[in-house]
């Protein structure tokens, strides 16, 4: 007997929650408890009174699993709303990365050139290193980090994806 794998698709969910102790563990733990995947998860409070946080979760799974993930999130008491941005239509996904590259000579010049092409900003520089700040869709960052590997990448930090629907309506 062998274990079968199913075809998966990627979805980005925007979840509004009460900003209370343990909420992140509740959400993240629900994913592990039910065997769902988290590609990335970001969270920060977004309301003037700090009462509400927005969690952006990039997840993947077969369509029936995505449907369950949304229903399971929605039944948690501190969860106010769950929006499947992938399902809802056009939306913007952005991620920020800080990328440290060390080296001298041709590598250093090439790193700078590539950063320019990718519109990465230099936020720290020494004679033998740069820290670049880059924002963009996750695959753009992925590509940039891949290129930096060839010219002296020493460290990278990524925020994980945040996303918002296009047009005037709110989630």
């Amino acid at each position: 007997m062998h274990i079968k794998e199913e075809q998966v698709e990627r979805h980005v969910l925007a979840v509004l929650v009460d900003n209370e102790a343990g909420i992140l563990a509740r959400i993240a733990g629900m994913f592990t408890a039910r065997g769902y995947n988290i590609e990335s998860l970001t969270v920060a409070d977004i309301s003037a009174d700090h009462a509400i946080s927005r969690i952006t979760i990039a997840t993947n799974g077969p369509p029936h699993v995505i449907e369950q993930i949304i229903a399971q999130l929605d039944r948690l008491v501190p969860v106010h709303s769950v929006r499947d941005l992938t399902e809802a239509g056009p939306h913007v996904q952005r991620e920020l990365a800080l990328v440290k590259v060390a080296g001298k000579g041709e590598n250093r010049i090439e790193a700078m050139r590539l950063a320019d092409v990718y519109r990465a900003r230099v936020v720290d520089a020494t004679t033998e290193s740069f820290v670049f700040e880059i924002t963009g869709a996750p695959d753009k960052i992925q590509t940039f980090v891949g290129l930096m590997r060839e010219v002296g990448l020493v460290e990278v930090g990524r925020t994980g994806v945040v996303a918002i629907g296009r047009g005037p309506d709110s989630a």
Binding site: H64, E67, Q68, A71, Q72, D74, R75
Partner: peptide, 11 residues
């Protein structure tokens, strides 16, 4: 009464 029960195993 629980939406997550719907389509969980049987569509």
């Amino acid at each position: 009464i629980d939406r997550s029960s719907v389509n969980k195993t049987v569509r």
